[in-house]
Amino acid sequence: MYQIAVASGKGGAGKTSISAALASWLGNSAISCDCDVDAANTALAMEAVIQSSEIYYSGTAWEIQQSSCTGCGRCVPVCHFGAIHMQKTLAVIDEALCERCGNCVGVCPSAAFKPVQKTGGELFISKTANGSLLVHAELLPGEDTSGKLVRAVRQKAEELATDQQTFCIIDAPPGIGCPVIAALQGCNLAIVVIEAGQSGIRDAKRLFELLASMKRPHASIINKTGIDAGADAQARQLAGHFGSRILAELPYDKRFREATEQGIAWHTYTDSFVAEHSCSLCTAVIQIKGELDDKSHTDR
C-alpha cells in the first residue's frame, strides 16, 4: 500500500480538506486514516458513517488507595514531574502532570498504588459518502498517548486494506511532535501543506527539517495564496530550498471551505473553480508518485 501523509506544521493550513479531496478522488482505491486523533475531522469532511468501533486502551496508570496511604510522603520527591503532592495526610496524584512512569509505585511502603487500565479513547471504522473506508479515532480529552493511538489507527488501516486499496491517505496532526512523527513514520510520500503566511511558512520549515531527519520523500501544496504576495513568494522559496516540488497552489477562496463544509468531494463540486483545482492537484500527486516509483526502480 502506498502511504501518503498530508501534514503542515501549522494547524488550520488545510490538511483535512486536502487529504479528503485526494482520498475522494482516489475513491475505492484508497483507504483513509485520520491521524489527528485529538481533533479528528476527516469523518465530517467525508460524511463518513461509523460501521464499527473498538475501545482503545492507552496503558496502565495508578490510583492511590486512600485507605492504604499512610501519608509517609516518600512518593512525592521521587516524582520528577511534580505530579504528587500531600493533601493533609494523603498523597494525591495530579493526572494532568502524571507521565505514568510508575516510579512512585516502587517506593510506597504500604502498596497504596493500584494499577488501572486506562481507556484512552475509541477507534472507528467508517464508510465515507463515496463508499471508501476511513479509520479514525477519538482520543479522550487530556489523554497523553496520542502517538500510540496514531500507530493503532495506521495499523488498523493496514489490516483492513484489500488488494483493491493501493493507497492509504493519512491526515496528520499539526505540529512536529510525537503524534506527527507517528503519522509520518514509514510513509512513501509526505505532502506538506504550506499556508501562505508568516506562521504557516515558519511551521512548514520545521516540518521540512523533521522530514529531512526522517528521510521521507516530500512534495508541497501552497494553500491560501493571494492574501499577501510576499508570503506567496516566500512559501515558494521555502519549498524550493528543501527541494520539494510544488504540486499545486490553491488560492484563498471561500468556495473551497463551502465545498468542505457541505461534505462534498472537491472534484465533484458544482463550481468548476474548486473541481478543476482539485483535479489538477490530485493528478500532480499521482504523477510524482510515478516518478518516485521510477526513481526507486532505477536506484535498485
Binding site: 502532570l97 489523554e143 497523553d144 463544509e261
Partner: peptide, 27 residues
C-alpha cells in the same frame, strides 16, 4: 497548542481562565 491531549493539558494547567477561540465551522 491545538488539540486536547497532553500538550494542551500542560499548557492550560494552572491558568486562572481559558479563552477558547472558535470559528463558525463544523470542524
Amino acid at each position: 497548542p491545538p488539540g486536547a491531549s497532553c500538550p494542551a493539558v500542560r499548557a492550560i494547567h494552572g491558568a486562572d481562565y481559558c479563552i477558547l477561540v472558535a470559528e463558525p465551522t463544523a470542524f
